[in-house]
């Protein structure tokens, strides 16, 4: 995929979920295509979903790494993907 097909991060809230969860990424030329691609790729086994797609470049992530590590990348902008804390499915109200 050429530079005209940027990466988008996909967040899905399932029918019974309370929050959108990061599920992965897709390549697409624009937001419309990103949404349909995300729907096709990431919601084939569930219904009643809400999908957010965000250009990867637009995401700024906090650094979860070991604070003592000396070789942290400069700045807090991720390369491609955000890193989100993985909350177990059975933790409620979070």
């Amino acid at each position: 995929m050429t530079p005209g097909w940027p990466l988008w991060e996909v967040f899905v809230r399932s029918r019974n979920g309370l929050a959108h969860k990061h599920v992965g990424s897709v390549h697409a030329v624009d937001a419309t295509m990103a949404l349909t691609n995300a729907r096709d790729v990431y919601t084939r086994r569930s219904e009643g979903t809400s999908i957010w797609v965000v250009p990867s470049a637009a995401i700024t992530a906090s650094d979860p790494a070991d604070k003592d590590a000396l070789f942290d990348p400069a700045g807090d902008k991720i390369y491609r993907h955000p890193t989100f804390y993985d909350i177990p499915a059975d933790v409620k109200n979070i």
Binding site: M1, V26, A28, N37, D40, R44
Partner: peptide, 11 residues
């Protein structure tokens, strides 16, 4: 033409 489209067409 793309992996994403593979999935879309199959759907």
């Amino acid at each position: 033409p793309t992996l994403e489209e593979e999935i879309a067409l199959a759907n």
